[in-house]
Design a protein around this nucleic acid. Structure first.
Lengths: 252, 252
DNA sequence: CAGTGGTCTAGACCACGTG
DNA sequence: ACGTGGTCTAGACCACTGA
C-alpha cells in the first residue's frame, strides 16, 4: 500500500491533505477532474475511510474540491487559501507573496485602558495596557499603519523586543504566546493626521481598515489591532460554502 | 436519555449543534463557562461521541467555542455568525437585521461575454450572458449597487421574474438553481457615473466593493457579481482559527 | 441498479493540561 | 495520575446521482 509522501510529521489526515493538495496543484486529477472515491483513496494510502474524509474536509474548507452525495468529488481549483499564520501576521503574509516586509515602530506607550479597550481585551477597569504604533512597508513602500493594543503582560514582552524587529508575532510565539482565534472586521475609514503623515496620503483619504481581535487557546484576549491599508494594495478574499469558510489577503 | 430538542429534521449532529447553540445563547453554560465533556454530552443526548464531535465542530467553526487537547471546551461568545444563505443573499441578510430590503432593477441586457467574463463564468468564447444592474435599499435608503452576470441559462430565468421582485436568490432556488460555493473578494473602489447617480454620492467617492463568484454543487459557475456599498453602511467580519473560518456582514 | 458520499456507532490509543 | 480532546479504525445503513 502507498504511503502519504508529505513527510512524517503530524496527523495522518494532515499529511494526506497536503498530499492531495499537491496532487491537485500538479494537475494529477486535471482541472474539473474527479477525485477517486473515498474508498479507493483509503486503499491507496492504507488508511481508513474516516481518515480520508477528515483530509478531504480540509480541502473542502479551503474551497479546493466539492462534495456532494451521490457523485465523486470534483476539483474546483488549485490552492489559493493561505495558512492561518500567513493571515495573522503581516510579516508572513508579505513573505508568502515574495515581497520584503518592513516595519518602523513609531511609538510604544503604557497607559490605563479606556472603557471600550477594557471590554475588548477582557480587562478590569483601569488596567494598564500597551499601545504600539507601527508603519508597515512592502519592499520599502508604506502600505499600512498598525495600531495595536496589548494587555500589560504581553505588551511587556513587546517592549523588550529589538525596535527594528520586523515581526512581533514570531517572537511572541517563542515566548509561548499563541494566537489561536482571531476575529477580523473589515470596513472603510478616512485617514487621520497620523495616517496622513505616515502613509503620505492626502488628509481624509479613504483607507481599507482591518480590525483584528485575537485570543489564545483558552479564549483569553491577547491583542486588539486597527490596521489601515492604502487602497489598491490589498484585497480580502473569502471562500465559503454551506459547510465552511476560509479567508485570505491578496495584493489588490 | 435526553433527546435533542431542535426539531426532528435533518442529521442528528445538526440538531445537536442547534441545541447547544441555543443553550449557549441562553447562558446555560455561562459566559466564559466550560462545556460538559464530549463523553458527558454523548450520554446526555443518547448519541455516540463521534456525533457529538461533529456537532461541536460546527460550533467551533462559528467561533462559539474553543477546542484544545487536555481541557474542556470554553464558551467564547454567543452566536454572531450568519448562515451561509444570509451571507449570499442581500435580501436575507437585510431581513436578519430586521431591516426592510428593497430592490430597483435598473436594467437587464443580453450580450456576448467578453474574454474576462467568459473565464470567470467558465463559458466558451462568444457565449451569450445576461447582465443585471440593480439598486438595493435598506429601509428605502440606497445602500448598494449590484452588477450581476449570469450565464444564459440562468439569466433567462431572471428575465422572467417580476421586475419588482426583491429577491432573485429565492426564486432561483425554487427553480433548482442552488448556490453551493461562493468566493468573495473585498476591496475599495471609486464611484463611477452609475454609482454616483444611483447612490447619490459624490463622483469618485470611495465605496466598499464585494465581488462574489458562485458555483453550483458540481462546481459550475452560476453567477459573478460586483456589489458596491456606501461606506458606513456595512462591515465584513471574519472569524478564523487554526481550524476554520466564518464570514458575516454587519451594518457598519 | 450500482456507486458514492453523508451519517452514525463502538471502541481504541495517544498527547496534552491541570491539579 | 487523571480527565479531556485529538486521531484512527472497522463496519453499518441511508440518500442521492447517474447510467
Amino acid at each position: 500500500m502507498a504511503v502519504a509522501g508529505g513527510g512524517t510529521t503530524g496527523a495522518r489526515y494532515r499529511r494526506l491533505a497536503a498530499d492531495l493538495r499537491e496532487a491537485i496543484a500538479t494537475g494529477a486529477y486535471g482541472a474539473d477532474g474527479r477525485l477517486p472515491s473515498e474508498e479507493k483513496l483509503a486503499q491507496q494510502y492504507g488508511v481508513s475511510r474516516g481518515t480520508v474524509r477528515q483530509a478531504l474536509a480540509v480541502l473542502r474548507a479551503n474551497g479546493l474540491v466539492t462534495s456532494r452525495r451521490g457523485t465523486r468529488r470534483v476539483v474546483l481549483g488549485t490552492a489559493r487559501t493561505q495558512s492561518f499564520f500567513e493571515l495573522l501576521s503581516f510579516t508572513r503574509w508579505a513573505r508568502s507573496l515574495g515581497e520584503e516586509p518592513g516595519s518602523r515602530t513609531i511609538g510604544i506607550e503604557r497607559r490605563p485602558a479606556e472603557p471600550l479597550e477594557c471590554e475588548q481585551l477582557g480587562l478590569a477597569p483601569g488596567s494598564q495596557i500597551y499601545r504600539v504604533l507601527r508603519l508597515r512597508t512592502l519592499s520599502r513602500v508604506p502600505i499600512m499603519v498598525e495600531r495595536t493594543l496589548y494587555p500589560e503582560r504581553i505588551g511587556a514582552l513587546i517592549k523588550r523586543l529589538d525596535p527594528h524587529a520586523i515581526s512581533h508575532t514570531d517572537p511572541l510565539a517563542e515566548e509561548g504566546v499563541v494566537f489561536a482565534d482571531t476575529e477580523h472586521t473589515i470596513d472603510l475609514v478616512y485617514a487621520d493626521a497620523d495616517d496622513t503623515r505616515l502613509l503620505g496620503c492626502a488628509p481624509d483619504a479613504p483607507l481599507m481598515r482591518e480590525r483584528r481581535r485575537a485570543t489564545d487557546q483558552a479564549g483569553r484576549p491577547l491583542m486588539w489591532s486597527d490596521d489601515r491599508f492604502v487602497p489598491g494594495t490589498i484585497a480580502f478574499t473569502v471562500h465559503n460554502s454551506v459547510a465552511t469558510t476560509a479567508l485570505s489577503r491578496r495584493r489588490g
